[in-house]
């Protein structure tokens, strides 16, 4: 009796950790993994009519997907837009984080709050604000018209791929700033001083020391922007029009007015697979890159 009770008490760290983790893991399994597995199985069914689904397993939905040039082109476009957005965001955000990490001495806290605040404000409203700016009768056009620079509103601003890219770059910037800043802030300044001491120029120090050491933050930023933007719905729906449409808008349509749940599930699965593949490639290449640099 005593022995049994004692064994219960002397549970290993493994057991203690997993009993604390069990609600979280339960949540993940129940609300994410099982539904995703179900989504996967739905992608092998067939929508017969509005209300009726044929549950015979088939690969046909995936064949449908790749036979519809629209879907394939939307997938490619989604990936392309995300790629451009990620690249622009990284290039523009890196110097900002670099400045705050290495040059700001006073009121660092204030700068940090400024960095993180947009992260928490409504995504929908951040996107919406670009509608105000880029719209036919929006801020941009009315200012240019008022200044006499143009005589007719620029209609291409809105409802285009470029508009989607600008908006996404703005809306997701906050997500890039944090990981970049954290990885730069972590760099021990004595490495940089040591490199200068060993005779490297400022430029060489950046490429041979600072940048390689900040790579974890760069990878973090890439993944944290790229993955969600591939599946973004709000921006293309509000800003994109037909030109800036992305795969998510079609997925929504399959679950909504088109009502072809299996094809929607297949599209979502393909999107997820693409995301996982790209994540794997990014992680792998950066790992190789870090090894070579160090």
């Amino acid at each position: 009796m005593f022995q049994a009770w004692r064994n219960l008490y002397s549970k290993s760290d493994n057991a203690k950790a997993y009993s604390l983790l069990s609600p979280a893991l339960f949540l993940i399994i129940l609300v994410m993994l099982i539904p995703m597995a179900l989504m996967l199985s739905f992608s092998s069914f067939t929508q017969v009519s509005m209300m009726e689904i044929d549950f015979t397993p088939t690969f046909q939905r995936y064949i449908d997907f790749f036979e519809k040039s629209l879907l394939v082109s939307l997938l490619i476009k989604s990936v392309k837009i995300s790629f451009i957005v990620t690249l622009i965001t990284l290039l523009t955000a890196y110097p900002v984080c670099y400045y705050i990490a290495f040059y700001v001495k006073k009121n660092k806290m204030l700068w940090l709050v400024l960095l993180t605040l947009p992260f928490w404000t409504s995504y929908l409203l951040r996107v919406f604000s670009w509608k105000i700016i880029l719209g036919t009768k929006g801020v941009f056009n009315s200012t240019l018209l008022g200044a006499g620079i143009i005589s007719e509103p620029l209609t291409f601003l809105m409802y285009s791929e470029e508009a989607v890219i600008i908006t996404l770059t703005h809306a997701w910037a906050a997500f890039a700033l944090l990981p970049l800043y954290v990885s730069l802030e972590k760099i021990d300044f004595s490495y940089i001083e040591a490199a200068r001491d060993l005779g490297l120029s400022k430029f060489e120090v950046f490429w041979k020391v600072t940048f390689p050491l900040s790579l974890p933050g760069v990878i973090g930023a890439i993944l944290i922007i790229f993955i969600p933007t591939v599946g973004d719905y709000v921006t293309p729906a509000l800003i994109g029009g037909t030109e800036g449409r992305m795969l998510s808008n079609m997925i929504q349509a399959y679950f909504g007015k088109i009502n072809n749940i299996p094809l929607g599930a297949a599209s979502a699965t393909i999107m997820l697979t693409t995301v996982i593949l790209i994540t794997a490639i990014v992680s792998y290449t950066t790992k190789r890159l870090t090894q070579r640099l160090s």
């Binding site: 099982i34 995703m36 591939v230 997925i251 599930a265």
Partner: peptide, 14 residues
Amino acid sequence: LIPEIILAVSILII
């Protein structure tokens, strides 16, 4: 990390 639309769609199905 996962695109939110995938979470939404899979919860919707179940």
